[in-house]
Amino acid sequence: MSELLTAKNLTVKILICLAVLAAVMGLCTFVGTQDISVKNVLAGPGTAPGENIDYDIFVRVRLPRVILAALVGAALAAAGVVLQAILRNPLADPYILGISSGAGLGVIIAVLLGVTWSFWAGSPIALFAFAGSLLTVWLVWTVGCLAGKSQVTSLLLAGVVVNAFFSALIMFLTSIAKSEQVYSTIFWLMGNITEKEPAVLWAAAVCILAGVVALFAISQRLNVLTFGEQQAKDLGVAASRTRAIAFGLAAFITAIAVSLSGLVGFVGLVVPHAVRLVFGPDHRRLLPISAITGAAFLVVADTIARTIVAPAQLPVGVITAIAGGPFFLLLLAKYSRKVSWLK
């Protein structure tokens, strides 16, 4: 039975995808407004700071940014896969249960209060976004559970209503804010990747990778869960517990991604679908390949965002939406699972 997934087959595919991702990241670090040469970068930092400018740009500017884009892309795509599975809804994305509006509200509150203190290398905006998104997710989950029986529907409804309510609050606060405050908020709401401290990057990398690996560990249970709660139980999966774990992990990595980069749209919706169309719906394959594809996609999108209107920079969310939409439609029209050589 060649159709079924084997560990070996999957490992090979993941390794190939990782190699492609590494190549994309490598290429993108050398693309930018300032040309840098591989030779100069490999020459090392030199004796005095500022002696080898190419190396400094590579290590301090390009590399952290490319890594950040990859992390955010991986987190959003993986979370998208998981939410589509547990909500059994192909329209779900990482933001559907209130993370976006919660984080946005946190950010605008931080901007309006003019908070300047920071904590463990995190900017106040990132911390407020993180707190805002987790609090909202907790609120939506609690309301959804209280609403009872058909948990999936009540969760979705609670998420949509909370999103709408918080969006209204965001608009209200934006309209009473000063214009320079509004400007930075809007950039954040559109999704914006900037250079971050190495310590922040490391912490985010560890959390997101751990989250993705943990989600991969329950991916077979996610497969079963797409058949609904009853059938999941018939097949030996404790449905409510699995859903809570999956949701918690997805919300956690999304909150990290959002606090680092703002609301980068479309990645969490389009990448899982694109990967599913090509590789099929088995989550043991869908989850890791989506995470890697999401990473590569956002790295490319961010490279375009920082070069296309140079020396100015676009918010990366604009690129993901403009590029992602038509790309997805093309894929939807052209592909089905008949592409057998990719399986």
Binding site: R88, P90, G228, R276, P281, D282, R337
Partner: peptide, 10 residues
């Protein structure tokens, strides 16, 4: 209610 396109073998 099928949500995703799982094959029969899957």
């Amino acid at each position: 209610v099928p949500v995703f396109d799982f094959s029969v073998a899957e």
